[in-house]
C-alpha cells in the first residue's frame, strides 16, 4: 500500500541524506556515531532472514541489502572523518556521551520476554524492533546537550520521523484489508513514533517559532 511504500522511501531518503551530506561535506557535525552504530545492529539482527534464502520479494530483499549496506557505509564515512578532520571528529565524540549499554541490555531482555517464538531468528527480530524504537536516543540526547540542530541532523530526523509516522496508517490499512495485526511491530513502532513526536514538538515550538532549540 501507498503508506508503506512512502514510509520505506522516506526511510531510504533519511539514510541517503545522511550518506550524501557526509560524503560531500566531510562533516559529521551533530551526528551521533552511537545512534548510527545501533542502526547497523538493528538492520543486521532484523534482516538475518536474508541468510535463510526464503526471500519475500525482489523489493523486500533489495531494500534489506541497501539498508544494511548504507548503514555500514555511514559508519565508514564517519571513521574517515577521523583522519581527515580530527578536530570535528573529536568534538563529535566528546558530545556523543549516551551510554548505549542502557539501551542494548533492556532491549535484549525485552526480546527474551516478548517474541513470537523462542528461536534465534525470532529473538533477534524482536530485539531489533525494540532497539530501533530507542536507537535515536543518543542522537536526541546529543541535540539536547548542544541545544542546536544543524540542517543535516534536522533533515535526517525529519525523514526518519516521517517514515515512522507513515507506518501507522500502513498498519491500520493492513488491519482492515488483510486482517493483519502484528502487535510487536505496532507497539514498538508507536513507542518510536512517540520519541520522534517529542523531537517534532520541541522543534516546532523552538525553531519554527524562532526561539532557539532545546530538548528536555
Amino acid at each position: 500500500n501507498i503508506f508503506r511504500i512512502l514510509g520505506d522511501l522516506s526511510h531510504l531518503a533519511s539514510i541517503v541524506i545522511l550518506l550524501r551530506t557526509v560524503q560531500k561535506t566531510r562533516q559529521v557535525d551533530g551526528i551521533s556515531l552511537k545512534t548510527q552504530l545501533l542502526y547497523v545492529l538493528v538492520f543486521c539482527t532484523r534482516y538475518l532472514d536474508l541468510l535463510t534464502f526464503r526471500w519475500k520479494s525482489v523489493y523486500n530483499t533489495l531494500m534489506k541489502m541497501v539498508f544494511i549496506g548504507a548503514s555500514v557505509r555511514v559508519i565508514q564515512l564517519i571513521q574517515e572523518c577521523k583522519t581527515r578532520n580530527a578536530v570535528a571528529y573529536k568534538d563529535m565524540m566528546a558530545r556523543d556521551t549516551f551510554q548505549i549499554k542502557y539501551l542494548v541490555g533492556p532491549c535484549a531482555i525485552l526480546a527474551l520476554v516478548f517474541n513470537y517464538k523462542f528461536t534465534v531468528l525470532e529473538l533477534c527480530w524482536s530485539f531489533s524492533l525494540w532497539l530501533e524504537s530507542v536507537a535515536i536516543l543518543p542522537q536526541l540526547f546529543m541535540l539536547s546537550r548542544s541545544g542546536k540542530a544543524g540542517t543535516l541532523t534536522t533533515h535526517y530526523i525529519f525523514a526518519l520521523g516521517l517514515y515512522r509516522a507513515l507506518y501507522i496508517p500502513n498498519w491500520i490499512w493492513r488491519y482492515y484489508t488483510e486482517g493483519r495485526l502484528e502487535k510487536l511491530s505496532v507497539f514498538t513502532g508507536l513507542l518510536q513514533t512517540a520519541l520522534y513526536s517529542d523531537f517534532f514538538y520541541i522543534y516546532y515550538k523552538k525553531v519554527i517559532k524562532g526561539a532557539g532549540f532545546e530538548l528536555p
Binding site: 523486500n60 534489506k64 500502513n170 493483519r180 495485526l181 502484528e182
Partner: peptide, 10 residues
C-alpha cells in the same frame, strides 16, 4: 501460515 509471524515489513 500464521500471518502474524510473517515479517514482511522492513
Amino acid at each position: 501460515v500464521d500471518a502474524v509471524t510473517v515479517h514482511d515489513e522492513l
